[in-house]
């Protein structure tokens, strides 16, 4: 047998492990999922950043369509008809019109148990894939600042629930046209689909699952909480899919409203 090479993947030879120099012996395309995750999340963040700071094409006055990226619109720069909760933030280029809610939505997703897995793997390579050594010499997980802050996820869940109520309100308002009559167009369908997806994602949250019933040990004494926990648990198994679905519906909803608002396309009207 030949002389063993030094272990190269962060383990110490003195621990007596099998001395295998390869970082991984996986033969499948283990790098593809983290690469796709990286590309998907980076593309979405780039789009959302551009749109959040664009400060135009966020509202279709004729049909009351307001993009979720600008809801609630609380800047002095907001069009008066789009601002349902007052206009009080200064109109400066570096302050998105929905600055009151966007940070909470960002933090809700940043501390989400699914997204944590996704970006720890795809951005921080910790680990890039199962059985593939990570490049970091030290690892302390979520035991120290700032990652200790991941434990605040439930507070951002509470905020996201409130914001989902506001998004629902926007979607309902969009059925009333500027002239006061009832209207139904493709934009309404997109707004409602987005809100349904947002609720499904928000309710399927792991913190929600714990809050509604997961934290108790006597389900038999709390039948309603048990039923709620079962419902959220069923949704929770789809949390990853819902996380990606809502990124898609948010971007699509925003893009559609931008396109109609900018006059690139006209809304497909069904009623009114």
């Amino acid at each position: 047998m030949s002389a063993a090479p030094e272990i190269s993947h962060g383990t110490v030879a003195s621990a007596g492990r099998a001395q295998i120099s390869a970082r991984t012996l996986r033969t499948d395309r283990w790098w593809l999922p983290p690469l796709l995750t990286f590309a998907g999340l980076a593309a979405w963040v780039a789009y959302a950043t551009v749109r959040a700071f664009m400060q135009e094409w966020y509202f279709v006055e004729e049909y009351n369509y307001l993009t979720p990226f600008y809801s609630p619109c609380v800047s002095v720069g907001c069009e008066p008809e789009s601002a349902h909760f007052g206009r009080f933030l200064p109109d400066v280029w570096w302050l998105p019109y929905a600055s009151l809610t966007l940070p909470f939505l960002l933090l809700f997703r940043l501390t989400c148990y699914y997204y944590r897995k996704a970006y720890y793997r795809a951005f921080w390579l910790s680990p890039p894939a199962c059985g593939v050594a990570e490049p970091h010499k030290k690892y302390s997980g979520e035991t120290r600042f700032p990652l200790l802050g991941q434990n605040l996820h439930r507070y951002f869940f509470y905020a996201a629930t409130l914001i989902s109520v506001i998004n629902t309100y926007d979607a309902v308002l969009a059925f009333g046209k500027a002239d006061g009559g009832f209207g139904l167009g493709l934009g309404n369908i997109i707004l409602v689909a987005n809100v349904v997806a947002l609720w499904a994602y928000t309710i399927s949250c792991h913190s929600c699952r714990s809050i509604v019933g997961g934290r108790i040990n006597n389900f038999s004494k709390h039948p309603m909480r048990y039923k709620s926990w079962q419902f959220v648990s069923r949704l929770n198994t789809k949390h990853m899919e819902l996380a990606w679905l809502t990124l898609a519906t948010l971007a699509l909803t925003d893009f559609y409203i931008m396109a109609v608002s900018a006059g690139w396309i006209s809304d497909l009207r069904i009623v009114g």
């Binding site: 944590r116 897995k117 720890y120 910790s126 199962c130 059985g131 997980g141 979520e142 200790l148």
Partner: peptide, 11 residues
């Protein structure tokens, strides 16, 4: 028992 070390990457 180091629960905080887990970064839920699901391997």
């Amino acid at each position: 028992h180091g629960l905080g070390m887990c970064n839920i990457t699901k391997c």
